[in-house]
């Protein structure tokens, strides 16, 4: 059982991926803060993804694993 602030080893990783797999992909609404770059730049939409400004806590391996799961 993983609890609190422990996240180590393969079991943690497996639990993490299991939880991620169970996530139903949320229908995110586009923000209205920048009503620009919508139709005209459709070619560019969703062609790039960036980590949070203050940094991610995901490891490179986890990112790759999630990329594989993505459908």
């Amino acid at each position: 059982m993983i609890s609190g602030r422990k996240y180590q080893g393969l079991s943690s990783f497996r639990l993490f991926t299991r939880r991620v797999k169970s996530v139903k992909q949320a229908k995110f609404r586009l923000p209205d803060i920048q009503p620009v770059y919508l139709k005209k730049t459709a070619q560019f939409r969703y062609t790039i993804i960036d980590a949070p400004r203050e940094g991610s806590i995901l490891s490179a391996e986890e990112v790759r694993e999630m990329h594989k799961m993505w459908k």
Partner: peptide, 25 residues
């Protein structure tokens, strides 16, 4: 830690849905 993932806009492909998944993770 920072990861930037991209596809060529000219390639006719995109990464729609991967961002929300990473955010969920």
């Amino acid at each position: 830690k920072r990861f930037v993932i991209s596809v060529d806009p000219e390639s006719g492909t995109d990464l729609k849905g991967l961002g929300p998944l990473l955010e969920a993770g």
